Computed example of a mutant assay.
Amino acid sequence: MEGRLMMEIAKRIEKGEKAALVTLIEVEGSSPGKSGSIMGVFEDGSIEGTIGGGNLEYQVINSALEAIEEGKNRKFDFELIEDGELHMKCGGRVKGYVKVFEKRKKLIIVGGGHLGNELYKLGKFLNMYTVIIDDREEYVDRKRFPHADELLWGDIGKILEKYSLDDGSYVVIVTRGHACDKVALKAVLEKKLAYIGMIGSRKKITDTYKELINEGISIKKLEKVYSPIGLDISSGEPNEIALGIMAEILKIKNQKSGKHMFEVKKVKIQGENL
């Protein structure tokens, strides 16, 4: 049972879902569950395994769902007495831990060209759930992207409008041209995302923004777009541009400054601050 439970947690995380592992770490006296009992709780409310059932399990499931929502691990400690929080008559006491497993971050690469291919390699290296979208069938080929989690071919705007995106999604728009970039950007602007970045020169970006404003898109929504995209570290080669984009994504994902580490953590040599 424990093996099946752990496999289900791994499968859910691989699919891009959140999950929690509940463990009873200490049991004193009479209790529905034994020390070491484990249970998987998933963000849709379903479970795998049991820690004994009853009101104890019901309350712990709710606590685990709250932990999943917050993205934070937590402990629990219940006295199983009639005057206790759970109003149970077992007479024992249980202590446990809820370990939250965050879903894999999604990297949505809109455009399967040279830059898209370099971004894909870095996305897989960083263990992100990597999706390639293009309106050219030959650019979403399994031979070109052998380890992509999803390859989507067709109308870019329609795909992005229907595709499930959330605050764990990082969208990078690097299509074959201005028109496709604009369609892709318009399709995701209303969604709550961790990151939207779009490739392009300042002129192309300015023209795209003007067109979208004329179509009723607010300036406030456009201000959340990272464009020109990436950190200023590349020579202009696709692999270096991709690295600059992924560095920018990591900066945002990890809420870091992006400064040189020697600026962040000053080193002392012989008592002197450098």
Rank of each mutant, 00 (worst) to 15 (best):
G84N: 09
K11R: 14
K268F: 11
A67R: 06
I213T: 12
P146A: 01
Q270P: 00
Y139E: 11
G113A: 06
K253H: 11
G96V: 02
S201D: 03
G123V: 12
P32E: 05
I61L: 02
V60A: 01
V264R: 11
I68P: 00
D141R: 13
M39H: 05
G154I: 09
S37W: 12
E2D: 14
P228Y: 15
I173K: 05
G200I: 09
G154M: 10
A187D: 01
K143M: 10
A184L: 08
C180G: 03
G33N: 12
V41W: 00
L107K: 08
Q270H: 14
M246Y: 08
K34I: 02
E102V: 01
K72R: 11
A19T: 08
D166F: 09
G91V: 10
K11A: 12
Y120S: 02
I269V: 15
K191D: 04
I81V: 14
G29F: 07
K251Q: 14
A148E: 04
E161H: 07
K89A: 13
A64V: 03
G91T: 11
T130I: 10
Y120H: 06
S31H: 12
K210F: 12
K253F: 05
K224G: 05
L21C: 08
A20I: 11
R142K: 12
M128W: 13
I213S: 07
I25T: 15
E28M: 13
K34C: 04
I81M: 10
F76P: 00
M128C: 11
I249Y: 03
S227H: 05
K103R: 13
E161Q: 12
A10Q: 13
R142H: 02
R142D: 02
I159F: 06
E28L: 14
A20K: 04
S35Q: 15
E28G: 07
